[in-house]
Design a protein around this nucleic acid. Structure first.
Length: 891
RNA sequence: GGGCGCGUAGCUCAGCGGGAGAGCACUGCCUUGACAUGGCAGGGGCCACAGGUUCAAUCCCUGUCGCGCCCACCA
């Protein structure tokens, strides 16, 4: 006997273990079935399950379970990402607590510690994914720094280097002074900052008293100024072009150059040029062959080494001693000191409050500093071309399609990808340097040595590049590196390309684009045929979830409270195309009620001896009731399958919900109650239950499997691989639908009238039909038990004689249903009700009549639309006439 | 500055050329043997605004307003 309530906390872990132990999640490379592959977006090894994960993995697991039931040989490839910066930060924080540090340990020891940490704590998220019910093929779990994957990374690096697509370059990078590494453009986040705009006066050389004022938000970088730029057409400054300004504090001579970069509308129209500390200034500097002194070090502290020799004393303007006092100070302190000094010298014209966007590192959270460094770059422009083409030609499609534009926009204007990072945790760059600085790029140190020997003619000591690769460089290989590439494995041949990639739009650039580029380049084919992009999870007010806002909902908490099924179903139900998912605990709670409803429907079946029966053939059902429910089930199956096919998880959920709750529980079970002695009804109920369990399994794997097992629809833990439901042939479905539709309408209408005329709920009343056809009366006779129970009828019969005084009346098709309730029914309410019904119908009829009176409508609208309106008008008018008659009778 | 998305019931959203829908919330009634995590019934909407196309517009087009996001810029 099923318990009265369903308790997921005990059942879910047990079932998951059962599946996993049975190998139910495993793909079968030797299978004859068509493969279906989804590559998990590998979560950071530091991660713990958040709502975004819950969304993306619920969607993936739903697809995977659906396809598995459809008989495909599914591979859902699990794994985690080494997440260079994130992981290094976590372990560094840990070391700090232990009173030591990365630098104190040294590189080798530190990396060893990270591996240790990974062994101990890196499995958190994979355990949490199990609680969500994710049916990943765990024995195939990979980590982006596994040996095999590292081989792939090195091969890719070496190949691209040899093709000239990876190279070293000295240029400005986004430097994170907190993490002390370069980061890519994508890892930069613009934040609004309330700062100041300083207007600084630069004296003109050889013209005492004349000044040119520049406006800047970063006075501290002026130490590195090497020019002042004005627009060539700017009349205010035309005579100054070609002359020099004197850089305050430093005393350096700055050429005043004409450059279109300068915008006369902005600031003062004259802009200071600091090529080593600003991306635009860097370009201007290149154009005018300006020196590019760096005045900030890797921690954004002032260093004077590159400007020392240009420090000059200029009375009242420049003071090398002051500048030297800034050495080693942080950029923020220097900003204040410089502003104060300029103020003192009378060179600060004004300071305005100024709100502007400042680029910050998205990990470290501090403003990034453009720094001139040598880094490794990947020529993404070349790699992007085949990837763009693959999407243009539809070899990979995005769902929803509009995301293709986002993809194109970025890919068509892609910048060189800085792939080196100044970290210790990650794939170390396979490049070694000889004593003369010559670089040898090779898959291993031995190979590099061999190359060096060939080059130098003898053994030379080589030193490996200190940097590691951007994490996304290795995750970009995920779709094939996990399958054994560069080995030609059976899995690689079978499961590449994948069928669908599921992810959020926020990583289209980071990851999807890189997989497309690297997949096209190294596999010669797209990594996946479909990219399904889901929205972001937000709180119920539509706010992004964040720690600082304190609006984070923890999926594990929800699973603990409501069960994984409820959470998963809520996610499906809320996941519309191109929409963010606004989730609240109350939504999950309401779907927990749905789980309970299903559970109790099953409990009803169990209590009434409804059991699986393999001998039952639904296509041979004979009763209107069984044909009706089987037909409705057919439609639910068709809708659900089409919805999943179209990635409409919301529609899939809705189709399940409506069928189970509205059709099966609210009507079928009620109709079946008086007919439980009928074998066909019971067999049908069992069949429908079993089918519903299969239909809902992808979204609600646990409760469905539990019921499947308990009822013995199959062996324990077998629903996961049970066949996906298909519609069955139902004879005379149309007639069954018409009949049950009539019964439902009769019962609903009678209930409605009873409530509105204040008939006490417990009081049975006769249901008498006026003007009913013989067919209608027979039909009612067939359903007399249901009508008795559900419409509280004491009898169902044709009306003999006139409608009695004080009766309630309602119009149902050709018949007028009379409830003779003299003394019980509230006549006043009944008159009001009938009048309202009549007026509603008249209003509707008037609108239709107007339409039909319009000659243009009749002439130009499609015939069937005109016909439909004529029919509706006729039906409406008949109803009105019957309602009028009923009103007359009531007096 | 460029682009994308969204404004439909109190809330969250579906619908998308011919009769305004769902869930939750709300109101009233009902502890009937599956389920009160339930049942039955009910109220609630110039489908953001203004034009246009059309026989017909919540739906298509244009514009306006509002909200959100992405990219670029960021003196």
């Amino acid at each position: 006997m099923l318990d009265k309530t369903y308790d997921p906390s005990e059942i879910e872990p047990r079932l998951y273990e059962g599946w996993e132990r049975a190998g139910a999640f495993a793909c079968d490379p030797n299978s004859n079935a068509a493969p279906y592959t989804i590559m998990i977006p590998p979560p950071n090894v530091t991660g713990s399950l958040h709502m975004g994960h819950a969304l993306t993995f619920t969607v993936q697991d739903t697809l995977i379970r659906w396809q598995r039931m459809k008989g495909r040989d599914v591979l859902w490839q699990p794994g985690t990402d080494h997440a260079g910066i994130a992981t290094q930060m976590v372990v560094e924080r840990l070391l700090e607590e232990q009173g030591t540090s990365r630098r104190a340990l040294g590189r080798e020891e530190f990396v060893e510690r990270v591996w240790q940490w990974k062994a101990e704590s890196g499995g958190t998220i994979t355990q949490q994914l199990r609680r969500l019910g994710a049916s990943l093929d765990w024995p195939r779990e990979r980590f982006t720094m596994d040996d095999g994957l590292s081989v792939a990374v090195r091969k890719v690096f070496v190949d691209l280097y040899r093709e000239g697509l990876i190279y070293r370059d000295r240029r400005l990078v986004n430097w994170d002074p907190k993490l002390q590494t370069a980061i890519s453009d994508l890892e930069v986040e613009n934040l609004e900052v309330k700062g100041s705009l300083w207007h600084i006066r630069y004296p003109i050389e050889g013209e005492p008293g004349r000044l040119i004022t520049v406006a800047t938000t970063r006075p501290e970088t002026m130490l590195g100024d090497t020019a002042v730029a004005v627009h060539p057409d700017d009349a205010r400054y035309r005579d100054l072009v070609g002359r020099n300004a004197i850089l305050p504090l430093v005393g350096r001579r700055l050429p005043i150059v004409a450059d279109e970069y300068s915008d006369p509308e902005k600031g003062t129209g004259a802009v200071k040029i600091t090529p080593a500390h600003d991306f635009n200034d860097f370009i201007v500097g290149q154009r005018h062959r300006l020196p590019m002194p760096s005045i900030l070090d890797r921690q954004a502290r002032v260093v004077l080494a590159e400007i020392d020799d240009s420090l000059t004393m200029v009375d009242g303007v420049a003071d090398p001693a002051f500048v030297r006092s800034l050495e080693g100070q942080d950029r923020n302190a220097v900003r204040r000191a410089i502003a104060a000094e300029l103020e003192r010298l009378g060179l600060l014209e004004k300071t305005e409050p100024y709100t502007h966007q400042v680029p910050h590192g998205d990990r470290g959270g501090v403003p990034i500093e453009p720094l001139l460094t040598t880094q490794w770059y990947c020529n993404a422009e070349v790699l992007a071309k085949p990837a763009i083409e693959a999407v243009e030609t539809g070899r990979t499609v995005f769902v929803p399609k509009q995301w293709e534009n986002t993809f194109f926009a970025w890919m068509r204007d892609i910048q060189p990808w800085c792939i080196s990072r100044q970290l210790w945790w990650g794939h170390r760059i396979p490049a070694w340097y000889g004593p003369d600085g010559r670089v040898f790029v090779a898959a291993s140190e031995d190979e590099a040595k061999a190359e060096a020997r060939a080059h130098y003619g003898r053994d030379e000591a080589l030193t490996q590049d200190e940097d590691v690769l951007d994490t996304w460089f290795s995750s970009g290989l995920w779709p094939f590196s996990t399958l054994g590439w560069p080995e030609k494995t059976k899995e690689l041949a079978r499961y590449y390309p994948g069928d669908v990639l599921v992810t959020g739009f926020d990583i289209i650039f980071f990851w999807v684009a890189r997989m497309m580029m690297q997949g096209m380049h190294f596999m010669g084919d797209v990594p996946f045929r479909t990219v399904y992009i889901h929205g972001l999870v937000r709180d119920e007010r539509g706010q992004k979830m964040s720690k600082s806002k304190g609006n984070i909902i923890d999926p594990l908490e929800l699973i603990g409270k409501y069960g994984a099924d409820a959470l998963r179903f809520a996610i499906c139900a809320l996941t519309g195309p191109g929409r963010d998912v606004k989730l609240s605990a109350s939504r999950v709670e309401s779907y927990r009620r749905f789980v309970t409803k299903l559970w109790n429907a099953a409990r009803f079946c169990e209590m009434n001896g409804i059991r699986p029966d393999d001998t039952f053939d639904p296509s041979r059902a004979t009763l209107p009731l069984t044909r009706w429910i089987l037909d409705a089930l057919n439609r639910a199956i068709t809708e659900a399958d089409a919805a999943l096919e179209a990635y409409r998880f919301d529609e899939y959920a809705a189709a399940c919900y409506r069928f189970v709750w509205d059709t099966f529980c609210d009507w079928f079970v009620e109709f079946a109650k008086p007919a439980l002695d009928n074998a066909e009804v019971k067999q049908t109920a069992a069949y429908v239950l079993g089918t519903v369990l299969r239909l809902m399994h992808p979204a609600m794997p646990f409760v469905t499997e539990e019921l499947w097992d308990r009822f013995g629809f199959g062996a324990p833990c077998s629903l996961i691989r049970a066949p996906w439901p298909e519609p069955v042939a139902v004879a005379d479905a149309e007639a069954a639908r018409a009949e049950l539709d009539w019964v439902v309408r009769l019962i609903s209408e009678v209930r409605s009238v009873r409530t509105e005329t204040h008939v006490p709920p417990g009081t049975p009343t006769p249901i008498l039909l006026r003007d009913a056809t013989a067919e209608t009366l027979e039909r009612g006779g067939r359903w007399i038990e249901a009508i008795r129970r559900l419409a509280r009828a004491s009898e169902f019969a044709p009306l003999a004689g006139e409608v009695p005084k004080g009766a309630a009346q309602l119009v149902l098709d050709e018949a007028t249903v009379v409830l003779p309730l003299a003394g019980i029914v509230d006549v006043g309410s009944e008159r009001t009700r009938l009048t309202r019904e009549r007026d509603k119908a008249s209003g509707e009829a008037r609108k239709i009549a107007q339409k039909l009176d319009n000659a243009d409508f009749v002439r130009r609208a499609p015939e069937e639309v005109v016909e439909e309106n004529r029919d509706r008008l006729a039906a409406m008018q008949a109803d009105i006439a019957r309602l009028e008659a009923a009103l007359l009778r009531i007096g």
